[in-house]
C-alpha cells in the first residue's frame, strides 16, 4: 500500500515549476491515451518528492496517471495542483485517480467554452480586422492576450493546490453557469463575424429595357437585408455539418461551386 508522507514537502516554487512543465501536456499526444505521457511528466518530479521513500507508491501513481486523459491545457495546472495536494496529504492513489477522472472532462468543457469558443472568436475578430488594414497591432494584441492566458496557469495551479477537495464542489456547482455565459458572448460575436467577414456578392444585372441596368445584389438583396447571402450560406454549412457532412467536403464543395459560379458569371 502506498505510504506517502503526511507532512508538507512541496514548496510554492515546486508548484510553479510543475506549472511550467504543464507545457509538456501534449508532447506525446496520441489517439490511444491522448495527453497521458506529458500529463504525467508534468507532475512526475513533484511525485518523486512526495513519494521519496516509497518506490512502490511512486510506481503506482505514475502508472495511474499514464492512463487516458484529455483535458484543457490551461485548466490542467489547476487539476494537477489539486491532485498534488491530495497525494501530499496521503490520500489513497485510487481516490485521487477517481477525482481526476471525474474532473478532467468538465474542465475540458469549461476550458473549451472559455478559450476556444469565446476568447478565440473575440480575439480572431479584433486582431483580424486590425491585420487586414495592415496594422501590426493585430497580431501583437493577440499574442499578448494569449500570453496572459498562459500566465493564468500559475495562479490556477496554486488555487487548485490550496483548495484541495473543496475545488471539486466549486467546479461541479459552477460548470453550467460559466458555460452559459461564455457561450452567450461567443455566439453574439459569431453573429457579428458572419456579417463582417463572410462575403458573397451576386454579379448579374437586369436590363429593364429603357437603358436602365439594375443590379440584383444592390437593388434586390441589399434592399431586403444586407448580408443576407453570407448569413444564408453560413446556415447552409451549419445544416450540412448537422447532417454529419465532413467539413473538408464542404470546403472542397464550396471551392467547386465558387468556380462554377464564376464561370457562369453569377458571382
Amino acid at each position: 500500500m502506498a505510504k506517502a508522507s503526511k507532512t508538507k514537502v512541496l514548496t510554492s516554487s515546486d508548484i510553479n515549476r510543475m506549472t511550467f512543465r504543464t507545457l509538456l501536456n501534449q508532447a506525446c499526444f496520441n489517439y490511444e491515451r491522448m495527453q497521458s505521457i506529458g500529463f504525467t511528466a508534468a507532475m512526475a518530479p513533484e511525485l518523486e518528492k512526495i513519494y521519496e521513500d516509497d518506490k512502490d507508491g511512486l510506481k503506482e501513481v505514475l502508472k495511474d496517471n499514464l492512463e487516458f486523459i484529455n483535458t484543457h491545457n490551461v485548466l490542467l495546472s489547476f487539476l494537477i495542483g489539486l491532485m498534488l495536494s491530495l497525494y501530499e496529504k496521503g490520500e489513497k492513489p485510487e481516490t485521487v485517480r477517481g477525482i481526476k477522472v471525474a474532473l478532467f472532462g468538465p474542465l475540458a468543457g469549461i476550458g473549451d467554452a472559455i478559450f476556444w469558443f469565446t476568447l478565440m472568436p473575440i480575439m480572431s475578430g479584433i486582431s483580424a480586422s486590425l491585420a487586414s488594414e495592415g496594422n501590426v497591432l493585430g497580431p501583437i494584441l493577440y499574442f499578448v492576450v494569449f500570453f496572459i492566458a498562459f500566465l493564468l496557469r500559475f495562479p490556477l495551479a496554486h488555487i487548485g493546490y490550496s483548495m484541495g477537495t473543496k475545488a471539486f464542489e466549486v467546479i461541479q456547482k459552477n460548470t453550467e453557469i460559466i458555460n452559459r455565459c461564455a457561450t452567450t458572448v461567443g455566439v453574439t460575436i459569431l453573429g457579428g463575424l458572419i456579417a463582417s467577414y463572410v462575403s458573397l456578392t451576386l454579379l448579374p444585372t437586369i436590363d429593364t429595357g429603357n437603358g436602365v441596368v439594375v443590379s440584383i445584389q444592390e437593388e434586390f438583396i441589399d434592399m431586403i437585408f444586407p448580408n443576407l447571402l453570407p448569413f444564408a450560406f453560413t446556415f447552409a454549412c451549419y445544416g450540412l455539418l448537422k447532417k454529419k457532412v465532413n467539413p473538408t467536403i464542404i470546403i472542397l464543395g464550396t471551392i467547386v461551386l465558387a468556380i462554377l459560379g464564376s464561370y457562369i458569371g453569377l458571382v
Binding site: 469558443f117 463575424l193 451549419y238
Partner: peptide
C-alpha cells in the same frame, strides 16, 4: 481568369464554414 476569380470568391466564403463549425458546437 474565371478560375482565379472563382478561387477568390471561395476565399471569401471559407470563413463561413469555420463559423458554422463553431455554431455546430455552440448553438
Amino acid at each position: 481568369e474565371f478560375l482565379t476569380h472563382g478561387l477568390s470568391v471561395a476565399g471569401g466564403l471559407i470563413p463561413a464554414i469555420g463559423f458554422a463549425m463553431l455554431l455546430r458546437v455552440m448553438l
